[in-house]
């Protein structure tokens, strides 16, 4: 993954050290994104470039509408009970493939199922047999709560038109030698959806 130094990030986005660390303190930027490496001045901090730029854009966009405390509340709340209608969800432009809405049958949708649908949306292009997608969706919606709470990452592998998924709790010492692999970090996905849907 491409990385960016802290100084470059501040120059690129125009934010200050104070803002960056305030957002970190409020939990809007996860601790794991601060990657520390030794340098001649002690240490230098790097960030995963795409993730951090995306998140900062979103915060800057929202901070005029919503206070920082409210944003922090939204992103740090464990489970949200709020249900929204499918039509509202369609208007958020969160989904690339409108077809995934066919998987969900009810009129209103809870937060967990929005995450699962978005997950389906992310893997939509790698699954050829759409029947398989449906089966997989039925499987994960059965265990939605456990999956979203307990697992950190999901890996998707497609070989011979078959979809294989691996649920990972701790990815630190995971090694793999497969090229066609799609990695989804659940926490990042959930946080991003929260910032779009819950605000």
């Amino acid at each position: 993954m491409e990385e960016i130094t802290k100084k470059d990030l501040l120059i690129l986005t125009g934010i200050s050290y104070g803002q960056l660390y305030r957002w970190k303190r409020k939990g809007l930027i996860p601790e794991e994104w601060f990657i520390k490496r030794a340098s001649f001045t002690g240490q230098e901090t790097y960030f995963p470039k795409d993730l951090i730029l995306d998140r900062i854009d979103k915060i800057l966009e929202l901070k005029d509408e919503v206070s920082l405390e409210e944003l922090s509340e939204i992103i740090n709340k464990k489970q949200s009970e709020k249900e929204i209608t499918i039509n509202d969800l369609k208007e958020t432009n969160l989904f690339f493939n409108q077809e995934v809405f066919d998987l969900y049958e009810k009129e209103t949708i809870g937060f967990n199922h929005v995450v699962l649908l978005k997950l389906m949306d992310n893997i939509y292009h790698i699954v050829e047999e759409k029947e398989e997608l449906k089966n997989f969706y039925q499987f994960i919606s059965k265990y939605a709560k456990d999956i979203l709470n307990d697992y950190k990452e999901i890996y998707f592998i497609t070989s011979n038109d078959k979809l294989t998924s691996i649920f990972v709790k701790d990815s630190n010492n995971l090694e793999y030698q497969v090229d066609d692999i799609l990695k989804v970090n659940l926490k990042n996905l959930i946080d991003n959806i929260k910032l779009i849907v819950m605000v």
Partner: peptide
């Protein structure tokens, strides 16, 4: 070791790097 902030005032400090506005 490192200090980073918007407004910084220092006295009696030993530091490797100070960065800020």
């Amino acid at each position: 070791d490192t200090i980073e902030g918007d407004e910084i005032y220092l006295e009696n400090v030993v530091s490797k790097a100070v960065r800020g506005n």
